[in-house]
Design a protein around this nucleic acid. Sequence first.
DNA 1: ATAAAAAACTTAACACTGTTAATTATATTT
DNA 2: AAATATAATTAACAGTGTTAAGTTTTTTAT
Lengths: 218, 218
Amino acid sequence: MSIANRKQKEKEDLSKKILDAAMELFTQQGFEQTSIRNIAKKIEYSPTTIYLYYKDKDAIFHALHQQGFALLNSQMQVLMHVEEPFERLKAMGRIYIGFAMENPALYELMFIQSAPMDFVEESEETIWQEGTTSFAALKLTLEDCMKNGYLPAQDIESTAFVIWSALHGMVSLHIKNRCKTIFPDNRNTIVESGYNNLILLIESLIMQPRKNHISASP
Amino acid sequence: MSIANRKQKEKEDLSKKILDAAMELFTQQGFEQTSIRNIAKKIEYSPTTIYLYYKDKDAIFHALHQQGFALLNSQMQVLMHVEEPFERLKAMGRIYIGFAMENPALYELMFIQSAPMDFVEESEETIWQEGTTSFAALKLTLEDCMKNGYLPAQDIESTAFVIWSALHGMVSLHIKNRCKTIFPDNRNTIVESGYNNLILLIESLIMQPRKNHISASP
DNA sequence: ATAAAAAACTTAACACTGTTAATTATATTT
DNA sequence: AAATATAATTAACAGTGTTAAGTTTTTTAT
């Protein structure tokens, strides 16, 4: 079985090599420059070889998008040590924004570009695993916040969606160059100011958490 | 001068014809199909003729993006008859969301795609007029809301940015297919639910507007 | 009316893109 | 060593934005 194993390993190696080259091109030179031909040139193979390892370009961008989620999830690991639900929620938002600002190309792939979703649609499991899992994590923390009276107990699904949207909206408007001329002075700090403002708004929803909170009567 | 006038009119006519063809292709067949060659085919001119009327593809998309703002602004005109500031703010949001849901391709061009901003960057007036003007209108209404105690008086700039971002986040996540699998049951209503939830959150910031509102002492 | 000048438009070409079919080279099995 | 399977390549198709050079049409001046 060792030859078959080696064969498989070689396949996986080249598969990874393609992805690494694509990632380097994508993060350093952008979406436009990440062509099949440029990836092939980088790994010194012919362009068509790539099609023996990935169905099409969308499949490559989907794989990159998965790597993006892996990175984001790894950064979210520090939340395990944050006991207070609302502190955890706030930290979650900071990590999300920080990730987006430091990895704009990757963020775009994960939450803006069509390619990864096109791949999902054409695959058998037509479900967006990465997004669904991440959103579930947000809902859990939000549920904790509501249970402990940090937030008015409303529909978790739509509340989580609003919070996610507010963060996505801020970073995506920034990444897609919609802030530059609207906030000429503080274009570099507007997302942070926005986030601080959002936190203030949420905090002022309930002034004294736990203390004055009326628990649901049995 | 009548010949010169006719000449100019002809130029404007073809200029508009190009734009109309581009708009039709774009809204009906999408971004990919809106190529210079396809536009040319539609108006029965050679592809290179288009370059006599528009600098490049970005210029065409910028012009389409301008038409998008013209349409959005026209829809916003009904706000003139809404006296109550907070009612006006809420209606503003509904119009914004409605526009995005009914004109997804156009919305994408206005707030997501790079092409129009690339054109702005390379033009002399490197300012995004359309966006800046619209944002100013939001700030004005928000300022009215704060003055009348419907909202805690905080920094207008960043508060307006958060509200805009929340709306943009919701509709852009929807348009870019990030809601489909996360909200399988209510994927068609999640944006509306989200907006209602957002309004509720803002309304619960101050329970009794005007009545219990403490005005700043002199 | 006719020749010169200007404007409008087209053809041909360059350097790319994703993707497929057919072909060659390499490695494994018999 | 021959047959088979795997891997990688070349050539080609149909498309993209864009530019330089050439042609047709229209306007101006004689």
